[in-house]
């Protein structure tokens, strides 16, 4: 693994970031600057292990964002997003292991591979709705680890053992630990992708996605091409989750079939609902929930950790049935009406 960064990649990345940010409204740019400042402060104040965990939570959040674009904004169920995470992670790992390609170039590649995969999977899935689509994606989640383990692919995927990678070091001779560098790297990637998701939802395409969710027949009669938009949303959703998968492979420096089981697929789904369906910032809460709550449940009792996890989950849903984002929205609404009544 090389630790230097190609000269060409730096201006490209900077340009992408700048274009994305310039398009935002003024006050959002300020919020973004504050977020970046907090991330940098965290990088120098937290212990490496906690920073590593936060990086993972952010990666999960990015994967949940992908799921949320599909389920929250487009109304298509998926219980199989662990499969896209796996495809992204393996694309990155195979490129680094067999192709000797630098880690940051694997992200767009993983995204594109997943986009194609998601788009193609979305085409037959167009005829399915609700529960039936949930089952089809569920099948995908179950099949993925078995496919990765299967004998014909063993040369590339490393079979049950998976692929062990090297953790990248900080470039330019910066005096950062690799956990600190990967945190900053992940934050940068996530920022660009979150802003893109925000722009997508605000755009004409985003409105079409939401219209399909709210009433597909009405959307169709307004001239929205249902099949195209649904399949495209599937592709974009897979793109996001795939990039998250690639980031995960880089940060954990290891991929194995059993990291991408049904449990993870369900975890992503739970994270999305807890954070709030159809909310972009809510996915951050979802990522934190997915990473930390099972650990918290384990501290209550080793034997009954599953039961405590379930109880926390039920109480969370009671407290905020439309997720963290829904709770915030509701509170704001109440405050506004109270202020207006005065």
């Amino acid at each position: 693994m090389t630790t230097r960064i190609e000269p060409l990649s730096v201006p490209i990345m900077a340009l992408v970031g700048a274009v994305v940010v310039v398009l935002l409204p003024y006050w959002k740019q300020i919020l973004l600057a504050i977020a970046v400042a907090i991330a940098i402060v965290l990088a120098f104040t937290l212990k490496n292990f906690i920073l590593f965990q936060l990086t993972l939570a952010l990666i999960y959040a990015l994967a949940i964002l992908g799921l949320n674009l599909l389920t929250g904004y487009n109304g298509q169920f998926s219980l199989g997003h662990s499969a896209f995470l796996a495809v992204g992670a393996y694309t990155a790992a195979i490129m680094m292991e067999h192709g000797g390609i630098d880690y940051y170039w694997t992200l767009p590649a993983a995204g594109v591979v997943c986009f194609v995969f998601g788009f193609l999977f979305g085409l037959p899935a167009l005829r399915l709705e609700g529960i039936y689509l949930a089952l089809a994606t569920f099948a995908l989640a179950i099949a993925m680890p078995q496919i990765l383990k299967s004998t014909p692919l063993e040369y590339w995927t490393g079979g049950v053992q998976g692929i062990v990678l090297l953790k990248p070091e900080a470039p330019f001779g910066l005096k950062l630990s690799s956990d600190q560098w990967l945190w900053i790297f992940t934050v940068a990637v996530a920022l660009v992708m979150y802003v893109c998701a925000y722009q997508l939802i605000k755009s004409r395409t985003g409105r079409a996605m939401i219209a399909i969710r709210d009433n597909s027949i009405a959307a169709k009669s307004m001239g929205i091409n249902l099949s195209l938009y649904k399949a495209l949303t599937f592709g974009v959703s897979a793109f996001y989750t795939g990039v998250a998968g690639a980031l995960g492979a880089i940060v954990i420096a290891f991929v194995a079939p059993d990291s991408f089981t049904l449990v993870l697929a369900i975890g992503l789904f739970v994270g999305m609902v807890v954070g709030g369906a159809a909310s972009i910032v809510g996915t951050l809460v979802g990522g934190l929930f997915l990473l930390f709550v099972p650990n918290i449940a384990e501290t209550f009792s080793k034997g009954l950790s599953g039961a405590f996890y379930g109880i926390i989950l039920i109480l969370t849903i009671y407290a905020m049935p439309s997720g963290a984002a829904g709770l915030v929205r509701l509170t704001l609404l109440r405050l506004m009406t109270r202020l207006a009544a005065r």
Binding site: F269, V270, G310, L313, I317
Partner: peptide, 9 residues
């Protein structure tokens, strides 16, 4: 999500 929680419990 409630079903998933029941499953775990």
């Amino acid at each position: 999500v409630i079903f998933i929680a029941l499953f775990a419990i």
